[in-house]
Computed example of a mutant assay.
Amino acid sequence: MPGMWWVVGVVVLAAIFSAYLGWTAQRVERLHARAQSAERALDAHLLRRAAAAAVVAEQAESVELYAAARLALDAEPGERETAENDLTRQLQKVALDPADPAARTLVATSRRVVLARQVHTDQVRDAQNARRRVVVRLLRLARRYPRPEYFDIVEPVLPELPPAPLPAQAV
């Protein structure tokens, strides 16, 4: 009978360890899925910003801004950070008209890029922290997932535009 308690203890410990491993593997999978989702969202917002910048460039007849927007739209994954940084530098040189709907769209998309980049950075950090855990490394629980990478770009903040003037009403 005394040997029976050892067996029960080992079985309980094995069950607890199995549950912990299952929970850890699931967490690693969730964090990587979130990082991939945040990367896709950031990519979509960057494309919207580049398209909005191209519209503003056409209206302002700014060749440099239009070229930077086209490069950002057409950039390959390895060239993306450089193209986005060039676009940001060009955008910071442009004077935006507060009454122009295209300029307002550009400012709004730039704000969304900032938020999407913050979310992406947080998700990548969390996924990389999970990958560094001893159990995850020893059991190679993250081997099925590509290592999430940070997207390092200059903060794409544009100046705040004053509210658009209201149309005059006939009296």
Rank of each mutant, 00 (worst) to 15 (best):
R111T: 10
R144L: 13
A164R: 13
R111L: 11
R117H: 14
P148D: 10
R112M: 06
K93S: 12
K93C: 10
A164I: 05
Q128G: 06
D97H: 06
S110T: 03
V113M: 04
R131W: 07
A130W: 02
P101F: 11
V136H: 09
P98T: 03
A164H: 10
Y145I: 06
R140N: 15
T121R: 11
Q169V: 15
A99Y: 03
A102C: 05
P167Y: 06
R125F: 05
V119L: 14
A142C: 03
A116D: 06
P163F: 12
V114M: 14
V134T: 14
P159G: 13
T109S: 09
P146I: 13
F151G: 06
Q90K: 14
R104H: 02
R140F: 15
L139R: 09
A116Y: 01
R132Y: 08
P165F: 12
Q90W: 01
A142Y: 00
A142K: 01
R143W: 14
Q118T: 08
A116Q: 05
A102K: 04
R131Q: 11
Y145M: 07
F151Q: 04
R117L: 08
L106P: 02
P167A: 13
A142Q: 04
V107S: 00
Q128P: 09
D100S: 14
V94Q: 12
Y150D: 11
Q90A: 12
R125Q: 09
D100K: 03
Y145S: 13
D97M: 05
V154L: 11
R111I: 02
V114Y: 00
E155P: 03
L139M: 15
T121M: 08
P167W: 08
V124F: 07
P98I: 02
R132H: 10
L141P: 06
A127S: 09
V135T: 15
K93A: 08
D100V: 03
T105S: 07
V94N: 03
R117P: 02
R137L: 04
V135R: 15
Q118L: 14
V113Q: 00
V107C: 01
V114G: 07
R140M: 13
L161N: 06
V124P: 10
V134R: 12
T109P: 01
A164T: 11
A168H: 14
A116P: 01
P146Y: 13
V119E: 06
R117S: 09
L139W: 11
Q90R: 14
L161W: 00
A108R: 02
R125S: 13
D152F: 09
V134I: 15
V94S: 06
F151I: 04
A103V: 12
T109N: 07
A103I: 07
V124L: 15
R104A: 00
P163R: 10
H120F: 00
V119F: 09
P167L: 08
L106R: 07
P101Y: 10
V119Y: 05
R125L: 09
P165E: 15
P159I: 04
H120C: 01
V134G: 13
V154N: 06
V94D: 04
V114C: 13
A130H: 02
A164E: 10
Q90D: 03
R147P: 10
A127H: 04
A103P: 04
V107W: 00
P98L: 01
R89I: 11
Q118V: 07
E149W: 00
Q128I: 08
A99R: 09
Q123M: 08
S110I: 02
